[in-house]
Every structure is written in structure tokens, then in C-alpha cells.
Write a protein that binds this DNA or RNA. Structure first.
Lengths: 112, 112
DNA sequence: CCATTATATAACCAAATGGTTATAGAAAAA
DNA sequence: TTTTTCTATAACCATTTGGTTATATAATGG
């Protein structure tokens, strides 16, 4: 068994494991572009707290930051979202395969 | 904007944000059933550490535990994997929609 | 220039995380 | 029954996390 060590997925899943950050991702998914201020506004947290959340999302590669003057515009990076999704898909597929094998095994055993 | 507060997703993504736990999930996806001992063996951690990882996966609903005598057999819970995958898919779809809208907007603006 | 606005950074704190060793409990084996 | 084996729990520790307030930096507006 080869053990995978993927710090990119670590960061991605960790970033998504917080409802405030997922809320920010939802805003970006729905509305395309948002500033740091807009992304923090709906949540009952301080401005520095929102800033830190955005840095976590940025370091995970989930969002892309573009500076426009004194405001920072964020957008979603669908590629990173897709990488996490791909991992889950592959594992569900593997699992489905295992279940098929198990079913086949059970059927064979049931034959006797 | 409705802010989502989903502690189930919190637990799911948090459980997946660790390469040891993802490795355990990979083993289960590939091989169907494994005992606690087998799941911990490939990793350079103590038995209690592996036990704790399995409890995190179990509490997240990612694995199902069945006691057989003194051994515990684990299997993957594809439903929870699918819930996380669904969240990612919906957000990618939203994002794709936003991009379409943006493209449409840009095209309209380019008309004049 | 000066004030305001948008965002980040520093310093700090409590709680959670992931690891350890030592121990307990319960089932299997001798 | 006694010993092993499998797994969990307790107690502890260092690091990380997510929050705060206070301050810095940088761009805009008067």
C-alpha cells in the first residue's frame, strides 16, 4: 500500500472545514467577484478575522486575489475545487468497485 | 445571502484534511473492509493515535465500525463521501454559471 | 496636506488538534 | 485460569486554530 502525502489536499480540505470559509466560497460561487469587505460582512466576526480566513482560502488555492487600488477582489479557483472533488470521486468509484467485487463474491458463495 | 451552518460538513472536511486519515480512507476504498490494526499499520504512529484517527473518521460518518469479537472492522460510508462531493459539485456548477453570466455580460458590453 | 477607507499585521488568548506513554477492558489462546 | 492480543481511554504535551484588540500600510477624497 502506497501512502499518499499530499499537503495540497490537506490545505484544501482544511480550508473547507470551516462554515465561515465555506460561506465565503458560496458567495464567490454565486456572485463571481467579491471584495474582502463584502466577503466578511455577512459573518459576525472582526475585520482581521475575515482577513485571516481569506488568507487561508488563498493559501489553499481555493480563491484568487487581485488588488485593485486599496480593495482586494477575490474570485473562486475552480481548479482546486475540482481537485478535491476528483479525490472524492475516485474514492467513491473505488468503493463502488469494491462493493461490486463483494457482491460478486457473495453471489459466488451463494451458489454453493 | 443565507449563511450556511453545517457542522456535518465541518466534520467531514476536517476528517479529510489529514493525510493519515485520507490514507485510511484510501485503504478502505480499495479493499472494502479493514480492522483498526490493519488501518494503522502502514503509518508511523502509535496504536492510540490510529485509534483516535478512526474515531474522527467514525464521528464524521465517513466510516462504519462493526465489532467482531475483539477486532473492529471498518468500511467506508459512501453517503458521507457523496455529501462532500455534492457540495463541491454544486459550487463548481454555480461558479460555471457565474462565468457564463460574466461572458454574456462582456459580450453585451462589447456590442456597443 | 489631512482625513477617511480598505486591508493586513502584530500580539495575545482559549480551545482544539495530533502526538505520546501508560493503563484498562474484553476476547482469544494456551 | 493465565497469558496474549486487539482496541480504547486517560493524562499529558507542543503546535495550530480561530478569535480578539490595537496598529500599520496604502489608496482615495476633501
Amino acid at each position: 500500500m502506497v501512502i499518499e502525502k499530499n499537503t495540497t489536499l490537506d490545505r484544501t480540505f482544511h480550508a473547507l472545514a470551516d462554515s465561515t470559509r465555506r460561506g465565503m466560497v458560496t458567495m464567490l460561487a454565486k456572485e463571481g467577484f467579491k471584495t474582502a469587505g463584502e466577503l466578511g460582512a455577512p459573518f459576525d466576526i472582526s475585520q482581521p478575522a475575515a482577513s485571516k480566513h481569506l488568507k487561508v482560502l488563498e493559501n489553499a488555492g481555493l480563491v484568487i486575489r487581485k488588488r485593485h487600488g486599496r480593495t482586494h477582489a477575490f474570485s473562486l479557483n475552480s481548479e482546486t475545487l475540482g481537485a478535491a472533488r476528483g479525490w472524492l470521486e475516485r474514492h467513491q468509484a473505488f468503493w463502488a468497485g469494491s462493493m461490486d467485487q463483494l457482491e460478486a463474491l457473495l453471489e459466488t458463495e451463494g451458489d454453493t
